[in-house]
């Protein structure tokens, strides 16, 4: 089979050089990415998995905060689009030597990087870069603000499995307050018409989230039977979180997806997790490997979604130059 570019009719539906947040996207833009991702997913099933869409482009994976899966996913996506990839991590960058983010970015631009994928511990860091660079900037997670490609791969997975987003009941469970995944998912799901429920310790799910148009639920047991999707976020109990809830044991007692709780889910209800999972904490170990779990689909779809995002933003940037 000849490896050719999938037919993409994005027309005027995507004009952004950067992907910084889901909040700023229109539903049409989200669907444009999802549709493109669908086309790119077929590429991954071919014998020759590479297309020439970004040949001659340089992508910099700039990860100021450690990450393995997101970085690898972007790297593979870039390879499949034939881009050249450079990885820079916090420990190898001049940020360690006190160079400012602005100066590091200007240096990357001076080297004619075309796309910068940024993971950073500060909310707004990718917007900061995007406003100062002509290169495309893709937000791969900025503090507790947003992680747009994670939300896109989540809604892609839901749409693929259940055929729609509109009208679904989706619960996001766990540490919402500090989660960029939760925020991006809330925006994506709301914009596509889902009903979103947030569940977790009240210290980690403050009422202020209700003004984002979601329901804050105090007990997982209250809503289990109604759900079409349950998305479990990684919960940690390291130094900073010790003031927020007493122990992982107590967390599991109220919010862990145990076998007993899972029996009350609808048979079609999807079990999701952005990873890495803590078996026996957020989710019972067998359930993670069970038929309702789509955790590995999420990983596979992440590649297609990121290919679509890189392709669309790079094309828009080329038109703007």
């Amino acid at each position: 089979m000849k490896a050719s570019e999938p037919t993409l009719d994005t027309g005027e539906n995507w004009i952004r050089k950067d992907l910084l947040s889901i909040r700023e996207l229109a539903p049409l833009e989200i669907n444009t990415i999802l549709d493109s991702a669908g086309a790119f997913k077929t590429v991954g099933a071919r014998d020759i998995k590479k297309v020439p869409a970004l040949r001659g482009k340089t992508l910099v994976n700039f990860f100021v905060e450690p990450s393995t899966r997101t970085r690898t996913s972007f790297e593979l996506a870039a390879f499949r689009l034939s881009a050249d990839v450079v990885n820079i991590s916090a420990s190898s960058s001049s940020l360690q030597k006190g160079e400012s983010l602005k100066d590091t970015a200007l240096n990357l631009e001076a080297l004619h990087a075309d796309i910068i994928v940024l993971r950073h511990s500060a909310a707004g860091a990718s917007k900061f870069l995007a406003e100062r660079l002509t290169a495309s900037v893709i937000n791969a997670g900025d503090g507790a603000h947003e992680h747009p490609t994670q939300a896109l791969l989540d809604v892609f997975t839901i749409r693929e499995r259940l055929g729609r987003i509109d009208g679904l009941k989706v619960a996001i469970v766990g540490d919402i307050l500090f989660s960029r995944v939760a925020r991006s998912n809330i925006w994506a799901l709301k914009k596509l018409g889902a009903n979103v429920f947030l569940v977790g310790p009240s210290t980690l799910v403050p009422r202020s989230f209700e003004s984002m148009g979601v329901s804050v639920v105090r007990s997982l047991d209250e809503i289990l039977e109604e759900l079409d999707v349950i998305n479990l976020l990684r919960i940690q109990h390291e130094r900073q979180r010790k003031e927020y809830f007493p122990s992982l044991n107590e967390y599991v007692r109220f919010f862990g997806l145990t076998k007993e709780r899972a029996q009350r889910l609808k048979p079609h209800c999807l079990i999701m997790h952005p990873g890495p999972i803590n078996r026996g904490v957020e989710i019972d170990s067998d359930l993670a490997d069970g038929p309702q779990s789509v955790i590995l689909d999420q990983v596979a779809n992440g590649l297609a979604v990121r290919m679509a995002v890189l392709y669309l933003c790079s094309t828009a940037a080329r038109k703007q130059r």
């Binding site: 947003e146 925020r183 202020s208 003004s211 984002m212």
Partner: peptide, 11 residues
């Protein structure tokens, strides 16, 4: 300020 915008922005 802790409120709607800090919630949205993750600051």
């Amino acid at each position: 300020h802790e409120g709607y915008w800090s919630t949205v922005l993750g600051l």
